[in-house]
Write a protein that binds this DNA or RNA. Sequence first.
DNA 1: GAGTGGTCTAGACCACTGT
DNA 2: CAGTGGTCTAGACCACTCC
Lengths: 262, 262
Amino acid sequence: MATAYERIADDLRQSIRTGQLAPGDRLPSEAKLADQYRRSLPTVREALRVLQAEGLLIKDHGRGNFVRRPRTFVQRTNTRHQWEKDRAREPLTKRASTGATEHDTGLEMPDLVFHAAYREVKATAELAKAFGVDEGTDLVERSYRTRYRVETAPFTLVTSYLVRDLVKENPDLLDETKEPWPGGTQNQLYTVGVELGRIEERVTARPPTSEEAEELELPPGTAVLALRKTSFDINGRAVEISDVLLPGDRTEMIFTTPLERW
Amino acid sequence: MATAYERIADDLRQSIRTGQLAPGDRLPSEAKLADQYRRSLPTVREALRVLQAEGLLIKDHGRGNFVRRPRTFVQRTNTRHQWEKDRAREPLTKRASTGATEHDTGLEMPDLVFHAAYREVKATAELAKAFGVDEGTDLVERSYRTRYRVETAPFTLVTSYLVRDLVKENPDLLDETKEPWPGGTQNQLYTVGVELGRIEERVTARPPTSEEAEELELPPGTAVLALRKTSFDINGRAVEISDVLLPGDRTEMIFTTPLERW
DNA sequence: GAGTGGTCTAGACCACTGT
DNA sequence: CAGTGGTCTAGACCACTCC
């Protein structure tokens, strides 16, 4: 025998799946649902919580509970890497027009708001291992967030690390007022003589920390996609590491793997 | 001013982060916590629910609340595709020894339990579009689940589609007792004269449906990684489509993108 | 101000786990 | 059996939204 809140949840879920409750519709108020199902208010609220965790429902304080609309996805491809590499040696005028994010999303620069911050940090054990350097080595940490101009929440948080010694020849790379750098990281590395040979991306899904949930304005129960990108130069040395955080409920990542011919 | 349950959650979260409460530790009973914080039981339970959603806590009915242990990850790479292609034309003896899952996880065949089911279905609008065929075209649907012998829950659910006409020349491909097919899908396709040229994988994170949560034995609040894999032959035709469902809390996907030299 | 969801209480009873 | 978490109730008061 299912519990009372499960039965209410099942019933409402059914109404949503059949379209009896359409996306955007407001549900009856919690008090009315309690009456309807002859259950107490907390029990009804428990049922709604289940549906919220399944992504079927949006709760809006003071307004009501609404059937969630299908999500619009932001895409992120791995073909962006080759695209960025091809442009890294192009003249400034060409590089300035669009970046890799625009390549992925089809949006234009003016649609996006970009924010960057720089910091010098010492390599943690984990980062030192990933870079193949000693713990405590000087790193440059750059934090980015990018959002649509029309929205308040960013759709990516990026924390990027470079070994300081590698980039010290180009002081512009340590100047946060120079961001967004036209042409992106691969062009930045080109200015200090580095060519990338391979990019590795490790992807996991996990619940956001409370801080991350707040910054990305994630509804409760939404996971984040955590992507650890490591860029290797043509000699196989790790030269840049980025931790990218993407809201799981509106990001689609597309990876294309070419195969060698028989 | 934070709410009561938030303050309790913050306090416990702090204890966990500092290690005052170590992974595997049991928390005081909910009644004791209620006493301690001078709050009602439901308020304490609300706080614990927050921590559970953050993946910091495991609730175990009748036993207690426990600090969650760090998760052990199952890895899934995209280098598996080239690896599988290289083996697709090898003799049976070599193909039989290990499959792509073993390549990724480092496990041996005897560690894994494999289950397959076959069904003939008509192409939905969505699948028809992805295959570039007419809606209603005959497809073969194969469902797999793979789990560790020592665990009860599978770590992948796979639903794979092939166009029936493409594989009808080899009747073994329609026989579910022949699974796991030594050498995997790429060898199966080789038997009907298909060579793969490119594989595209689209990854999203979303909350599981109630059915999926049950089948994967996911704790509440855990997301699934949903991967739509499309295999294209050397002429760019989609020949196989797989929907792969992975538990988000213990899967790491690794994608390597090689870059062309300047 | 009326209507909505959000927080909190005090307590009852049930279900699961271990001894 | 004792101790734990899971479900459910009836009701109070607060915070937000919209008219």
